[in-house]
Design a protein around this nucleic acid. Structure first.
Lengths: 141, 141
DNA sequence: GTGGTTGCAAAGGTTTTGCATGTGC
DNA sequence: GCACATGCAAAACCTTTGCAACCAC
């Protein structure tokens, strides 16, 4: 959590609580979920603070906004340099994925299509090892 | 546009107009932009119809929702089997990318991490060939 | 002490929904 | 003709903003 200090931001109890909540779940979390979670210890925290704090975390490179299907933004804690993920659609656990997979792709795209890649989204959705083992087949809807 | 019929959906003038508008721009488009565009020919169309139609298009596999940063959904027309894109952050043009790049990645992830990939997002943001040529460097903010 | 941060509440904007009417098949 | 699609408007929703009080540094 010392990463927060390194980000050159003020270390308030709220921010700590939010960062901690996000880091601890190991899953993607919406603002509402973080709000519910953090409110157990900070009953007077406001939703706006969550929004402002996660924005700050994203800018500091400590979190990432997942543009996930369904119009609600979710956030995940992430170590610098790990901006791609495996996201379990069952338990919502998130695993990091390094840049190593994307870098060669970006390079070949630049070469073959003349496209100058700035950044890329690469996220895999599916079942994590545990969930895949639990149910061999995806659950029927 | 015959793809619409194939999707087993009713072919209404509104849907045709929306699909056409989306297909013709060759760019990502927000609902608001489609609304403005389609309204030139269908002044009485409602925003709700746009939302319902793009949802239908997405379900039919003829469009894709881009979860782009900034909380507004944008949609792009896409041929079946081309669900990854190069998106120009300058002119907002969209180029298709086949599945060929992702398939091997998904396979290796399944093998190495025990993760059962269902689907993946892979979109590259940057400058298309034309925009990259126009301005060698990204514009200063 | 000071400037950034918080909490509250209200505003802003996007997306969804209900229902009567209209229409493709 | 019937089921589905549309238009309208209001509701629901997430997110942002303004501002006074507060607090980390």
């Amino acid at each position: 959590m010392a990463a927060l200090e390194r980000a050159g931001q003020r270390l308030t109890p709220q921010r700590l609580a939010i960062a901690e909540a996000l880091a601890r779940t190991g899953k993607e979390a919406t603002v509402q979920e973080l709000y519910d979670q953090v409110r157990r210890k900070h009953p007077y925290i406001g939703r706006a603070t969550i929004f402002r704090s996660v924005d700050m975390l994203v800018e500091a490179g400590l979190a990432q906004r997942l543009e996930r299907p369904g119009h609600v933004s979710a956030y995940i804690w992430c170590e610098p340099g790990h901006h791609h993920h495996l996201i379990c659609t069952s338990c919502r656990a998130v695993e990091d994925l390094g840049e190593t997979l994307v870098a060669p792709l970006a390079k070949s795209i630049a070469r073959e299509r003349g496209f100058r890649v700035d950044h890329a989204t690469l996220d895999f959705y599916g079942l994590c090892r545990a969930c895949a083992a639990k149910r061999g087949k995806p659950a029927a809807s």
